[in-house]
């Protein structure tokens, strides 16, 4: 084993953070690029399903809140792209890989938002699942990723609460509103459980990521934690979760839940979800439509530079 590898291992063992200019094994760097980039892409693709409802939010208050939330998602994407760039990849390259389908984003964002209640269900369940995943990432061994996660987790709790409040309001409204809330929960529940990734015995990267302290808990552990939190929250909403196997298991001290449809999960991951093509097409269009703005800003900065240099020369 090289001295560098031994130094790295000792640092991980001692629960120290790895920083950008430290030596790190190539596989550790690659794993981080894949994971943080996927996370960043998820944040910005995640703006689309909710952005879909900004113009149709039921009140000015809800509209202002939703805009702030979608703006936060853009911010989260930026924190995470910055963290990925500390590993020596360029921002443009990351976006190219997303647009070409070479890097993935969370499958959850390939489901459509059919009604206003979906905005509530996303906040409560999707952001709730994301928070469960992300809190342990605040202690990830890679410093820039851990620091980005601290900022993100602070901001996510507003997201989850606003979603829960939307559902609570609908669930206590007219029968039709309550039905709309129930329908949204029925559609988002299983995809939210899939957000934690494959079961532990099927998860390709888990063991190594845990050894590197990138991940602190297994997929199944986090999924169980989320179910245990969500069930009592659903009861307070007065809504049911679409799983007839869901019941408290006193022996385990956890809720048992039914089998997840992994065929659906893999179908959506591989590109055949309800909205995969639309999400990428929108993203590519937004990027291409912005190209002239990026070029113009660079041209303007160059001109300012040249002008300043000219003035200095003149003064000398």
């Amino acid at each position: 084993m090289s001295d560098q590898q031994a130094g790295f291992d000792a640092m991980i063992e001692a629960d120290q953070r790895i920083e950008p200019r430290d030596w790190m094994p190539e596989a550790y760097r690659k794993t981080l690029v894949r994971q943080i980039a996927q996370h960043a892409h998820s944040e910005i693709i995640g703006m689309q399903p909710e952005g879909n409802w900004i113009t149709r939010a039921p009140s000015l208050k809800r509209k202002a809140i939703l805009m702030a939330k979608v703006q936060d998602e853009a911010g989260h994407g930026l924190y995470l792209y910055s963290a990925t760039e500390t590993l020596g990849v360029s921002r443009d390259d990351l976006l190219d890989q997303l647009h070409a389908g070479k890097q993935k984003y969370s499958s959850i964002f390939n489901y459509p938002t059919l009604t206003w209640a979906d905005v509530g269900a996303i906040g409560w369940l999707v952001d709730g699942a994301a928070i469960t995943n992300q809190i342990p990432l605040c202690r990830c061994s890679y410093g820039p990723y851990a620091r980005a996660m601290v900022r993100i987790c602070k901001e996510e709790s507003f997201h989850q609460r606003q979603g829960y409040e939307i559902l609570y309001t609908l669930a206590n409204g007219t029968p039709a509103q309550k039905q709309m809330a129930q329908d949204a929960v029925n559609r988002w529940w299983w995809p939210s459980l899939m957000m934690f990734g494959p079961a532990d015995d099927e998860s390709a990267h888990s063991a190594q990521s845990m050894a590197w302290k990138i991940k602190r808990h297994s997929n199944d552990e986090l999924r169980q934690r989320f179910v245990d939190m969500a069930v009592p929250q659903a009861e307070i909403l007065g809504l049911t979760l679409p799983d007839s196997d869901l019941r408290w298991n006193a022996e385990r001290g956890h809720y048992d839940f039914g089998p997840i449809d992994w065929d659906e999960f893999w179908r959506v991951v591989k590109g055949d979800g309800p909205c995969n093509r639309q999400r990428i097409a929108n993203r590519v269009k937004a990027h291409e439509d912005g190209e002239w703005v990026r070029a113009a800003a660079i041209a303007y900065a160059d001109k300012q530079h040249a002008r300043q240099a000219g003035t200095k020369e003149h003064a000398a």
Binding site: P20, E85, V89, S90, D92, D93, A297
Partner: peptide
């Protein structure tokens, strides 16, 4: 760490 390079034909805005 080597300096990241932007894909050909484009110039990235500098990092701050």
């Amino acid at each position: 760490m080597s300096e990241p390079t932007a894909p050909e034909g484009r110039r990235e805005w500098p990092l701050w």
